Amino acid sequence: MSANPKVEELHSYEVFEQIKRFLIKKEQKSMGTRKSYETDIKIFFKLIKNKELQFLTKEDVNLTLDDFEDFINYYQQNKIYSNKTINRKVSAVKGLLKYLKVKKLVEDDLSYFSEVTSLPEKRNSYGIPTVDEVLKWAELALLETHKPKEKRLLILFSLDTCIRKSAALRLKWSDIVLQDGYVKVSGIDKRNKEFRHEISESFYNELLTIKHDSEHVFEGITVDMIDGMMERLKLKTNIDPNRNIVFHSIRKAGGTFRYKASGGDIIAVQRALGHSDPKITEIYLDETTSNAMGAVSSINNIDKELFKKVPHEILLKVIDELSQTEKYLLNKKINDLIK
């Protein structure tokens, strides 16, 4: 520590100002990103230096490998956070130190970062609802006390476009453009990636019913409100907790529907979900998108001419018992043949 209190106070002010600049850069992505970084950095320095951010000095931000190892070991041993959360907090601090080094506030060599080992993470295994379940939730959302119409349309919009809830909540009316015969939706999603989707004009007209003087499409809806709504909807529809259904699951349902509707085009689904790696896309697809048995076994076990032999009323009854997705695919095929 500096022996001169005035010098230390000056350094403290300088460090805090640069931390604020760093957070402002993160805010350019979203306010949620900034808050996440700020919280993670606060927690790190509170444990390692026992200081709030505004009191950090140059000496405090010149960290060592031991500091990172102490942080990781403490939270892993006490099981306060998951490995994924610990990794995120460490990553946030490393990002800050790189920024402060450019600003000449970190003097130490950061090559030791390569020795800061990430903890193994479990992949989120969120369940995938059926389209019918999602449509049911959309109608039940109309019974919500606060902004029921907005919540219903948010559910339908997520199913239709497969975008994340954070991107949907940032969506502005200016991001939706009516063009020749279709409606273009564009915006910024996770990791600053641009997304582009198309929705029908009829669905766009539905969205316009909630447009008032607001800039954002889903004005007044927050992440906490969405999460709370999902808990209520799951209770009303008796969703098994073991299925691990969350709002993000609706995005998976939308991806699975596109997979079936496109005849198994994984690339089309990959584009819709905004994934760089098709292997990630495969994780999003419902297990029921593939048969339990192979083609030969399936053909041998089922009479492929059976639909021609059953009475018409049985065929209609079977069709009536299909899911909304299956009915859509059947009607789409009929429509294509008529054309």
Rank of each mutant, 00 (worst) to 15 (best):
S2T: 09
A3D: 14
V7T: 15
Q18H: 13
I19F: 01
I19A: 06
F22N: 02
K25L: 13
Q28C: 07
Q28T: 14
K29P: 00
K29Y: 08
G32D: 13
R34C: 10
R34V: 09
Y37H: 09
I41Q: 03
I43N: 12
L47T: 01
I48A: 07
I48H: 00
N50T: 03
E52Y: 04
Q54N: 15
K58F: 07
L65S: 10
D67G: 08
E69W: 06
E69L: 11
Y74C: 04
I86D: 05
R88V: 03
V90C: 08
V90H: 02
V90F: 01
L96S: 01
K103R: 14
L110F: 05
Y112K: 06
T117D: 11
S118L: 09
K122E: 14
N124G: 12
S125I: 12
Y126N: 10
T130Y: 07
V131G: 01
A138Y: 02
A138Q: 02
E139N: 13
E144I: 02
T145A: 08
H146N: 12
K149W: 02
K149P: 03
L153G: 05
I155P: 04
F157C: 02
L159V: 03
D160T: 15
K165S: 08
A168P: 01
A168V: 06
W173Q: 01
S174D: 11
I176M: 07
K184Q: 11
F195A: 05
R196M: 10
I199H: 08
Y204R: 00
E206P: 06
H212L: 12
D213L: 09
H216Q: 11
V217I: 03
E219C: 10
E219V: 07
G220L: 10
T222H: 11
V223Y: 12
D227M: 05
G228I: 06
E231P: 00
L233G: 02
K234T: 00
K234Q: 08
T237R: 00
D240S: 06
P241A: 06
I245M: 02
R251C: 04
R251K: 10
A253N: 05
G254Q: 00
F257T: 05
Y259F: 12
L273Q: 03
P278S: 01
K279V: 13
I280E: 07
E282H: 03
L285N: 06
T289R: 03
S290V: 14
S298I: 07
S298P: 00
S298E: 12
I299F: 15
L306R: 14
F307I: 15
P311K: 11
P311H: 11
L316F: 15
L316S: 13
V318D: 01
I319P: 09
D320G: 15
E321R: 10
Q324A: 14
Q324I: 11
Q324V: 13
L337V: 14
I338D: 10
I338S: 15
K339Q: 13
K339N: 14
K339W: 07
